[in-house]
Design a protein around this nucleic acid. Structure first.
Lengths: 126, 126
DNA sequence: CATTTGCAATTACAGGCGTAATCTAAATAT
DNA sequence: ATATTTAGATTACGCCTGTAATTGCAAATG
Protein backbone atom coordinates (compact mmCIF):
# COMPACT_ATOMS: atom_id res chain seq x y z
CA UNK A 1 0.00 0.00 0.00
CA UNK A 2 1.84 3.04 -1.25
CA UNK A 3 -0.81 5.59 -0.43
CA UNK A 4 -2.98 5.40 2.66
CA UNK A 5 -6.07 6.55 0.83
CA UNK A 6 -5.28 6.50 -2.82
CA UNK A 7 -7.43 8.17 -5.42
CA UNK A 8 -7.74 6.04 -8.52
CA UNK A 9 -7.22 7.35 -12.03
CA UNK A 10 -10.91 7.54 -12.81
CA UNK A 11 -11.60 9.16 -9.47
CA UNK A 12 -8.96 11.80 -10.06
CA UNK A 13 -10.75 12.83 -13.24
CA UNK A 14 -13.81 13.59 -11.14
CA UNK A 15 -11.68 15.43 -8.60
CA UNK A 16 -10.34 17.60 -11.41
CA UNK A 17 -13.85 18.74 -12.19
CA UNK A 18 -14.45 19.65 -8.57
CA UNK A 19 -11.12 21.37 -8.28
CA UNK A 20 -12.01 23.57 -11.20
CA UNK A 21 -15.25 24.62 -9.53
CA UNK A 22 -17.00 23.76 -6.30
CA UNK A 23 -19.47 22.97 -5.06
CA UNK A 24 -21.18 21.14 -7.88
CA UNK A 25 -24.04 18.72 -8.06
CA UNK A 26 -23.64 15.27 -9.54
CA UNK A 27 -25.44 16.50 -12.59
CA UNK A 28 -22.98 19.36 -12.98
CA UNK A 29 -20.11 16.92 -12.82
CA UNK A 30 -21.77 14.68 -15.35
CA UNK A 31 -22.26 17.65 -17.65
CA UNK A 32 -18.65 18.73 -17.21
CA UNK A 33 -17.42 15.27 -18.15
CA UNK A 34 -19.76 14.71 -21.07
CA UNK A 35 -17.28 16.32 -23.44
CA UNK A 36 -14.11 14.61 -22.29
CA UNK A 37 -15.33 11.12 -21.36
CA UNK A 38 -18.06 8.76 -22.43
CA UNK A 39 -18.90 7.69 -18.92
CA UNK A 40 -22.49 7.03 -18.04
CA UNK A 41 -24.12 9.09 -15.37
CA UNK A 42 -24.22 6.06 -13.10
CA UNK A 43 -20.47 5.63 -13.42
CA UNK A 44 -19.81 9.17 -12.35
CA UNK A 45 -22.14 8.79 -9.39
CA UNK A 46 -20.29 5.69 -8.35
CA UNK A 47 -17.04 7.60 -8.49
CA UNK A 48 -18.47 10.45 -6.43
CA UNK A 49 -19.65 7.97 -3.84
CA UNK A 50 -16.28 6.28 -3.66
CA UNK A 51 -14.62 9.64 -3.21
CA UNK A 52 -17.10 10.40 -0.43
CA UNK A 53 -16.33 7.12 1.24
CA UNK A 54 -12.64 7.89 1.01
CA UNK A 55 -13.31 11.17 2.74
CA UNK A 56 -11.81 13.34 0.03
CA UNK A 57 -15.00 15.07 -0.98
CA UNK A 58 -17.95 16.26 1.06
CA UNK A 59 -21.62 16.28 0.15
CA UNK A 60 -24.01 18.84 1.43
CA UNK A 61 -27.71 18.37 0.87
CA UNK A 62 -29.30 20.93 -1.37
CA UNK A 63 -32.97 20.15 -1.75
CA UNK A 64 -33.28 16.79 -3.40
CA UNK A 65 -29.69 16.54 -4.45
CA UNK A 66 -26.24 17.02 -3.04
CA UNK A 67 -23.55 19.54 -3.67
CA UNK A 68 -20.11 18.05 -3.69
CA UNK A 69 -16.89 19.79 -2.90
CA UNK A 70 -13.33 18.56 -2.62
CA UNK A 71 -11.85 18.22 0.83
CA UNK A 72 -8.44 17.28 -0.45
CA UNK A 73 -6.67 20.24 -1.99
CA UNK A 74 -5.33 19.89 -5.45
CA UNK A 75 -1.87 21.07 -4.43
CA UNK A 76 -1.74 18.36 -1.79
CA UNK A 77 -2.74 15.70 -4.25
CA UNK A 78 -0.31 16.94 -6.87
CA UNK A 79 2.42 17.03 -4.31
CA UNK A 80 1.91 13.53 -3.01
CA UNK A 81 1.63 12.07 -6.48
CA UNK A 82 4.76 13.87 -7.62
CA UNK A 83 6.69 12.97 -4.54
CA UNK A 84 5.77 9.32 -4.90
CA UNK A 85 7.06 9.33 -8.45
CA UNK A 86 10.24 11.22 -7.62
CA UNK A 87 10.94 8.87 -4.75
CA UNK A 88 10.37 5.78 -6.86
CA UNK A 89 12.28 6.87 -9.91
CA UNK A 90 14.58 9.76 -9.16
CA UNK A 91 15.89 9.26 -5.70
CA UNK A 92 13.37 11.75 -4.40
CA UNK A 93 14.89 14.75 -6.11
CA UNK A 94 13.73 17.06 -8.83
CA UNK A 95 16.98 17.68 -10.64
CA UNK A 96 17.42 14.10 -11.86
CA UNK A 97 13.98 14.23 -13.39
CA UNK A 98 14.84 17.36 -15.28
CA UNK A 99 18.11 15.77 -16.31
CA UNK A 100 16.24 12.75 -17.58
CA UNK A 101 13.98 14.84 -19.74
CA UNK A 102 16.84 16.87 -21.06
CA UNK A 103 18.76 13.74 -21.96
CA UNK A 104 15.74 12.48 -23.82
CA UNK A 105 15.61 15.88 -25.53
CA UNK A 106 12.13 16.28 -24.24
CA UNK A 107 12.51 19.75 -22.88
CA UNK A 108 10.66 22.30 -24.92
CA UNK A 109 12.01 25.79 -25.58
CA UNK A 110 9.23 26.97 -23.35
CA UNK A 111 10.33 24.63 -20.58
CA UNK A 112 13.88 25.80 -20.87
CA UNK A 113 12.95 29.43 -20.74
CA UNK A 114 10.69 28.91 -17.77
CA UNK A 115 13.22 26.86 -15.93
CA UNK A 116 15.87 29.44 -16.49
CA UNK A 117 13.68 32.17 -15.14
CA UNK A 118 12.66 30.07 -12.17
CA UNK A 119 16.20 29.24 -11.24
CA UNK A 120 17.25 32.83 -11.53
CA UNK A 121 14.48 33.94 -9.22
CA UNK A 122 15.22 31.26 -6.70
CA UNK A 123 18.87 32.09 -6.86
CA UNK A 124 18.13 35.72 -6.37
CA UNK A 125 15.81 34.93 -3.48
CA UNK A 126 18.33 32.79 -1.68
CA UNK B 1 -6.67 1.75 -19.71
CA UNK B 2 -4.03 4.46 -19.39
CA UNK B 3 -1.07 2.26 -20.21
CA UNK B 4 -1.27 -0.47 -22.80
CA UNK B 5 0.77 -2.85 -20.73
CA UNK B 6 1.15 -1.39 -17.32
CA UNK B 7 3.65 -2.64 -14.79
CA UNK B 8 2.16 -2.66 -11.31
CA UNK B 9 3.91 -1.26 -8.27
CA UNK B 10 4.94 -4.63 -6.95
CA UNK B 11 6.11 -5.68 -10.37
CA UNK B 12 8.23 -2.58 -10.75
CA UNK B 13 10.10 -3.50 -7.60
CA UNK B 14 11.10 -6.74 -9.28
CA UNK B 15 12.03 -4.88 -12.44
CA UNK B 16 14.30 -2.68 -10.37
CA UNK B 17 16.23 -5.71 -9.28
CA UNK B 18 16.65 -6.84 -12.85
CA UNK B 19 17.60 -3.40 -14.01
CA UNK B 20 20.37 -3.32 -11.48
CA UNK B 21 21.80 -6.59 -12.76
CA UNK B 22 20.79 -9.06 -15.44
CA UNK B 23 20.32 -11.82 -16.07
CA UNK B 24 19.36 -13.21 -12.71
CA UNK B 25 17.65 -16.37 -11.59
CA UNK B 26 14.46 -16.27 -9.56
CA UNK B 27 16.53 -17.19 -6.55
CA UNK B 28 18.85 -14.25 -7.15
CA UNK B 29 15.88 -11.93 -7.29
CA UNK B 30 14.45 -13.41 -4.12
CA UNK B 31 17.79 -12.91 -2.42
CA UNK B 32 18.03 -9.35 -3.64
CA UNK B 33 14.60 -8.55 -2.25
CA UNK B 34 15.01 -10.31 1.07
CA UNK B 35 16.45 -7.18 2.63
CA UNK B 36 13.96 -4.64 1.35
CA UNK B 37 10.69 -6.60 1.32
CA UNK B 38 9.15 -9.44 3.27
CA UNK B 39 7.69 -11.12 0.24
CA UNK B 40 7.63 -14.88 0.10
CA UNK B 41 9.54 -16.63 -2.63
CA UNK B 42 6.23 -17.67 -4.22
CA UNK B 43 5.13 -14.07 -4.43
CA UNK B 44 8.25 -13.04 -6.27
CA UNK B 45 7.89 -15.92 -8.68
CA UNK B 46 4.34 -14.88 -9.38
CA UNK B 47 5.54 -11.38 -10.14
CA UNK B 48 8.26 -12.70 -12.44
CA UNK B 49 5.67 -14.74 -14.27
CA UNK B 50 3.33 -11.83 -14.66
CA UNK B 51 6.17 -9.74 -16.03
CA UNK B 52 6.95 -12.56 -18.45
CA UNK B 53 3.35 -12.70 -19.57
CA UNK B 54 3.36 -8.97 -20.08
CA UNK B 55 6.38 -9.38 -22.30
CA UNK B 56 8.63 -7.04 -20.35
CA UNK B 57 11.11 -9.65 -19.19
CA UNK B 58 12.53 -12.68 -20.93
CA UNK B 59 13.41 -16.04 -19.46
CA UNK B 60 16.19 -18.14 -20.81
CA UNK B 61 16.59 -21.69 -19.60
CA UNK B 62 19.79 -22.31 -17.71
CA UNK B 63 19.84 -25.94 -16.65
CA UNK B 64 16.96 -26.51 -14.34
CA UNK B 65 16.13 -22.90 -13.81
CA UNK B 66 15.64 -19.73 -15.78
CA UNK B 67 17.61 -16.58 -16.10
CA UNK B 68 15.46 -13.52 -16.32
CA UNK B 69 16.35 -10.28 -17.99
CA UNK B 70 14.42 -7.10 -18.58
CA UNK B 71 13.23 -6.44 -22.10
CA UNK B 72 11.84 -3.05 -21.23
CA UNK B 73 14.61 -0.55 -20.63
CA UNK B 74 14.57 1.38 -17.42
CA UNK B 75 14.86 4.69 -19.21
CA UNK B 76 11.78 3.85 -21.25
CA UNK B 77 9.82 2.93 -18.18
CA UNK B 78 10.95 6.00 -16.30
CA UNK B 79 10.09 8.15 -19.24
CA UNK B 80 6.61 6.79 -19.71
CA UNK B 81 5.81 6.99 -16.02
CA UNK B 82 7.11 10.52 -15.80
CA UNK B 83 5.36 11.63 -18.92
CA UNK B 84 2.08 10.20 -17.70
CA UNK B 85 2.42 12.15 -14.48
CA UNK B 86 3.46 15.37 -16.17
CA UNK B 87 0.57 15.10 -18.60
CA UNK B 88 -1.93 14.46 -15.86
CA UNK B 89 -0.79 17.08 -13.43
CA UNK B 90 1.45 19.62 -15.12
CA UNK B 91 0.10 20.10 -18.59
CA UNK B 92 2.83 17.84 -19.90
CA UNK B 93 5.69 20.18 -19.11
CA UNK B 94 8.60 19.95 -16.75
CA UNK B 95 8.85 23.57 -15.65
CA UNK B 96 5.51 23.63 -13.83
CA UNK B 97 6.58 20.62 -11.82
CA UNK B 98 9.75 22.36 -10.76
CA UNK B 99 7.73 25.44 -9.98
CA UNK B 100 5.39 23.40 -7.84
CA UNK B 101 8.23 21.98 -5.80
CA UNK B 102 9.83 25.34 -5.40
CA UNK B 103 6.56 26.85 -4.22
CA UNK B 104 6.27 24.09 -1.68
CA UNK B 105 9.83 24.87 -0.69
CA UNK B 106 10.74 21.32 -1.45
CA UNK B 107 13.79 22.03 -3.53
CA UNK B 108 16.99 21.11 -1.76
CA UNK B 109 20.18 23.11 -2.08
CA UNK B 110 21.51 20.18 -4.00
CA UNK B 111 18.57 20.28 -6.36
CA UNK B 112 19.03 23.95 -6.93
CA UNK B 113 22.69 23.65 -7.62
CA UNK B 114 22.16 20.78 -10.00
CA UNK B 115 19.35 22.51 -11.79
CA UNK B 116 21.41 25.62 -12.21
CA UNK B 117 24.26 23.67 -13.68
CA UNK B 118 21.95 21.75 -15.97
CA UNK B 119 20.28 24.84 -17.29
CA UNK B 120 23.59 26.51 -17.89
CA UNK B 121 24.83 23.57 -19.87
CA UNK B 122 21.68 23.33 -21.90
CA UNK B 123 21.77 27.01 -22.53
CA UNK B 124 25.35 26.80 -23.59
CA UNK B 125 24.59 23.87 -25.86
CA UNK B 126 21.70 25.56 -27.58
C1' DC C 1 14.83 -47.59 -10.94
C1' DA C 2 12.50 -45.05 -7.01
C1' DT C 3 12.63 -41.15 -4.30
C1' DT C 4 13.65 -36.79 -2.94
C1' DT C 5 14.36 -32.08 -4.14
C1' DG C 6 14.41 -27.77 -6.52
C1' DC C 7 12.01 -24.85 -9.58
C1' DA C 8 8.47 -23.36 -12.27
C1' DA C 9 3.54 -23.45 -13.40
C1' DT C 10 -1.04 -23.48 -11.83
C1' DT C 11 -4.48 -22.25 -8.77
C1' DA C 12 -6.36 -19.27 -5.01
C1' DC C 13 -8.52 -15.55 -3.00
C1' DA C 14 -9.85 -11.06 -1.20
C1' DG C 15 -10.00 -6.29 -2.22
C1' DG C 16 -9.75 -2.37 -5.57
C1' DC C 17 -11.07 -0.49 -10.05
C1' DG C 18 -13.64 0.55 -14.26
C1' DT C 19 -17.93 0.49 -15.69
C1' DA C 20 -22.35 0.31 -15.14
C1' DA C 21 -27.69 -1.37 -14.26
C1' DT C 22 -31.14 -1.55 -11.05
C1' DC C 23 -33.59 -0.28 -6.91
C1' DT C 24 -35.57 2.98 -3.81
C1' DA C 25 -37.14 7.08 -1.82
C1' DA C 26 -38.51 11.67 -2.45
C1' DA C 27 -40.51 15.28 -5.24
C1' DT C 28 -43.56 16.68 -8.77
C1' DA C 29 -47.18 16.42 -11.85
C1' DT C 30 -51.74 14.86 -12.93
C1' DA D 1 -53.96 10.60 -3.78
C1' DT D 2 -51.60 8.24 -7.35
C1' DA D 3 -48.31 8.12 -11.19
C1' DT D 4 -44.19 9.61 -12.85
C1' DT D 5 -39.81 11.55 -12.77
C1' DT D 6 -35.41 12.24 -10.54
C1' DA D 7 -31.47 11.63 -7.79
C1' DG D 8 -28.90 8.99 -4.81
C1' DA D 9 -27.93 4.12 -2.90
C1' DT D 10 -27.22 -0.59 -3.65
C1' DT D 11 -25.75 -4.30 -6.25
C1' DA D 12 -23.06 -6.31 -10.11
C1' DC D 13 -19.31 -8.14 -12.47
C1' DG D 14 -14.99 -9.12 -14.71
C1' DC D 15 -10.19 -7.86 -14.53
C1' DC D 16 -6.01 -6.49 -12.07
C1' DT D 17 -3.15 -6.67 -7.90
C1' DG D 18 -1.00 -8.21 -3.77
C1' DT D 19 0.02 -12.06 -1.68
C1' DA D 20 0.68 -16.53 -1.53
C1' DA D 21 -0.08 -22.16 -1.30
C1' DT D 22 -0.16 -26.13 -3.93
C1' DT D 23 0.94 -29.02 -7.74
C1' DG D 24 3.75 -30.88 -11.31
C1' DC D 25 7.83 -32.05 -13.44
C1' DA D 26 12.68 -32.76 -14.24
C1' DA D 27 17.11 -33.58 -12.25
C1' DA D 28 19.92 -35.41 -8.82
C1' DT D 29 20.57 -39.00 -5.54
C1' DG D 30 20.14 -43.26 -3.12
Amino acid sequence: MVNAMAISDAESVVMDVLWRKAPQSAEDVVAALAASTDWQEATIKTLLNRLLKKGVVSAERDGKRYLYRPLLKRAEYVHSESKTLLDRLFDGRVAPLVAHFSEQRKLSKKDLAELKKLIEELDHDA
